[in-house]
Write a protein that binds this DNA or RNA. Structure first.
Lengths: 207, 207, 207, 207
DNA sequence: GATGAATGAGTTTTCATTCAT
DNA sequence: GATGAATGAAAACTCATTCAT
C-alpha cells in the first residue's frame, strides 16, 4: 500500500520500533512488567536506553503500546473466526479452533494477554487499559449474539443467558489452553475443538 | 488446643504476625506486589519496618506466607464443601455455593488468589509457589473424582474426561465470580448455584 | 527553650538536616543549582543519597528550603537593623553596616541570595519563590517608610519618592558589596557606611 | 562594507548562524541555560540538531557566542551615549536615557545580560566570560572618568570616589529598570532620566 | 552541507534491608 | 524485642554529542 511511500529512514524507524516491541514482548511475557528494566529491553533489542525513549514516552507507554498491538491481533483473529460461517455451531467450533491456533503460535503474546484480561490487571495496569477491557467486553457480546441467534433458530436450547454462555465458552477455552500451556506433556493440545464444545453441547445430566 | 500452652509473649507475637499479614493482604490485593513497599505495610500495621523483618526474612517471604495462608483457608473450605454430602450433584452444588460464599466474604483474599493461580502467576511469582500449584492440582483431581464417581453411578453422562470436567467447573465458577467482582452492579452475585451448574448439566444441543 | 524536650533521636535528626543544608549551601552557592548533583551533596555531607530524600522530597525542595532559611536570616538581621534606633539617619547607617556585616560573615549565603533576588531568579527559580520576593518587597516598603518619616520630620529633602530611595539604597549597598565580593583586594570592604551613604546624602550638584 | 564580497554560500551561512542565535536568545533568556536543550533550539530555529554543531562547538560555545554578541550591542550603545556630548551632566543623562531605551527594546537580551553580569554569573558561567567582565570593568572606568572630569571642572562636588559614583549610577539605573521589568504596571518606565539622576544630583540632606 | 536517529554517561529518585540505640 | 534512620544498589529517564546517509 502506502508503504512504498515511506522513505528508507522511515522504514528503518518502523523496523526499529518493531524490534523494540519484540524484545519487550519476550521479556514482559516472561518476567512481568516490574521485573524487566528498560536497560534489559534495550540490550535485548541491541539498542541504547535512550533509543527506547525516542519511540515511547516511558516504560508504561511502551508496555501499553505492546499490549494494545498484541491484543489487537488476538481479537481480530477471533472476530474473523466467528464471522467465517453462517452456522452457529460452526462459528463456535471456529472460535475454539482459531483461539487454540493463535494461542499455540504466540505463547508470549498470550501470556501478556492473560496477564491483562485476568489476574494481574488488578495490579500492574489497574485501569490503565480501559480500551482493552472494553474491546474484550464487546467481543463477549458478539459471542453472546451467536448463542442468541442459535436459540432463536431453535438450534440451541435456552439453558442459560447468552452472555453467560459466551462467558462460559471463553473461560472454558482459556482453561483448557492453560492446561496445555503449563504442562504440554500432561495435557496435550486439544486438536479436536469438540472436546471442549461437548461440555457445552451435551448435558451432564442425560435427557 | 495447644494455644493455652503459649506464653503471653508468644501469643502477642502471633497476634503481631497476624496484624502484619492483615495489613499486607489489603495492600497487596489492592495494588500488587511491586506497588507496595515494606514501609507502607509497616505503617498500615502500625509497626516499624524493622519489626517486619523480625517476622519474615524479606518481602517475598512475607508475600509467600500470606499467599500460602490465604490459599489454605480457601482450599480447606472447598475441600469441605465437596465432602459434605454423598450425593455428587449436591457436592457440586455445594462447591459452587461455598466458593461463591468464600469469595464474597474475602474479596481481598480472592484478588490475591487469582493473581496467583491465573495471570500474574507467570509474572510476579513465576514458579515461586509450587506448593500452591500442587495443592491446586490435587484439589482438581479430587473434584474430578466426583465426576468420575457420578459417571460410575450413571448419574452423569460420560460427556468428557472427569479431569476436564473438573477444570471446566472450576473455570466456570471463576469466570462468573469474576464478572461479579469486576461489576457487581451489572452482574449481581449468582445466589442460585444452578445458574452455573445448568451450563454443565443441560446440553446446549437438545436431546 | 523547648529544645530540651527533644529526644536524642530528634536532636540527631535536626543536626543531620542542618548538616545536609550546610553541604548544599556551599555547593549551590559555588556552582549553582544545576551543576550540583544530589550525590555530590550527599558525599560532601557524608550521607547516602537516600538520606537526603528522607529530609527533602526532592532536589528542588532541598534548594527551596535552603534559600528560605538563608534569606530568613538575612532579612531578620536587616529588619532589626532599621529598627534599632529612632533616628532616621542612624537607621540607614545601621542598615548599611549590618548588611555589610552579614554579607562578610556569610559569603555563600549571599551568593545564593543574589542569585535569587537578582539575575538567576528569572532562570532557575522563575517564580518558584514568591514568598521570598514578597518578603523582599515588604522589606523595601519598610525601608521606604524610613525615608518618608525623615522627610516628614524635614530631616530629608524630598528629592525622590521614598520607595525609589529605598530601591536606591538597596541597590547601592548591593553594588558596593559586590565589588568587594568579586575583588576584595581592589575594593576593600567599606568599613565606613558613610562612604555609601554620602552618595545619597550629599548632592553631586552643590547647593 | 565587506559584505558584498561574501559568496551566496557565505551569506547563507551567516544568516543561518544568526537565526540560530535568535532562537537561542529567546529560549535562554526565558528559561536559563540549563533548562533549554539543543533540540529545543534546533526546532525553534527550524534546523537539525547536527546543524547547530556545524556552527558552534558545543552548547556552552553557542551560549557564550550569544552572550558576547548581545553584550557587544549593549556596550556599544552605552559607550556612544556617554560620548555624544561634551557636557558631563548631559553625558550622564544620555547614559541613563540610552540604557533605558536599549533595555526596553531588547528585554530578552537584557535578561541574558543581567544573568551574566549579576547573579547567575557565579553559577552558570562561573568565570566563563572574563572578556565580558573586563569590558564591563573598562566601561565603568570610562563612566568614572565622566565624574572625574566633572569634578575637575568643578561641575560636580567631590562627594565620592569617581569609580564609586560610576558603580552607583550603574546600579541605580539597573535597579530602576528592574522594577519596571518585573512589574511594568506598578513601576512605569522612567521616561524622565532625571528621576534617577536627581538621587545623585541632589543630596538627601539639604545644603 | 544538512539531517536526525542513535548513543550512553550522568542524574534523580525509590525502597528493601540493616543495625545502632 | 522494637525502632526508624541510614544505606546504597538499582531503576527510569534526559540530553549533549556523534556520524552514517
Amino acid at each position: 500500500m502506502a508503504e512504498k511511500r515511506l522513505s528508507r529512514r522511515e522504514r528503518e524507524r518502523l523496523r526499529h520500533r518493531k524490534e523494540i516491541l519484540e524484545a519487550a514482548l519476550e521479556l514482559f511475557s516472561e518476567k512481568g512488567f516490574h521485573n524487566v528494566s528498560m536497560l534489559e529491553i534495550a540490550k535485548k533489542g541491541e539498542f541504547a536506553t535512550g533509543t527506547l525513549y525516542k519511540f515511547f514516552q516511558n516504560k508504561e507507554d511502551l508496555y501499553k503500546a505492546l499490549v494494545l498491538e498484541q491484543s489487537d491481533k488476538f481479537h481480530n483473529a477471533l472476530v474473523q473466526a466467528i464471522e467465517a460461517s453462517d452456522d452457529e455451531v460452526e462459528k463456535l467450533r471456529n472460535y475454539v479452533r482459531t483461539k487454540g491456533d493463535v494461542f499455540r503460535a504466540n505463547v508470549s503474546m498470550i501470556r501478556l494477554y492473560f496477564a491483562e484480561t485476568r489476574g494481574a490487571s488488578f495490579n500492574i495496569m489497574a485501569g490503565l487499559d480501559p480500551e482493552i477491557r472494553e474491546r474484550y467486553g464487546r467481543f463477549l457480546e458478539r459471542l453472546a449474539s451467536v448463542f442468541a441467534s442459535g436459540m432463536e433458530k431453535k438450534r440451541f436450547q435456552e439453558i442459560a443467558d447468552p452472555f453467560h454462555l459466551a462467558t462460559a465458552i471463553d473461560s472454558l477455552t482459556n482453561a483448557f489452553l492453560f492446561l496445555w500451556l503449563e504442562a504440554p506433556d500432561q495435557h496435550p493440545y486439544p486438536d479436536d475443538p469438540d472436546i471442549i464444545l461437548n461440555i457445552l453441547f451435551k448435558g451432564l445430566l442425560g435427557r
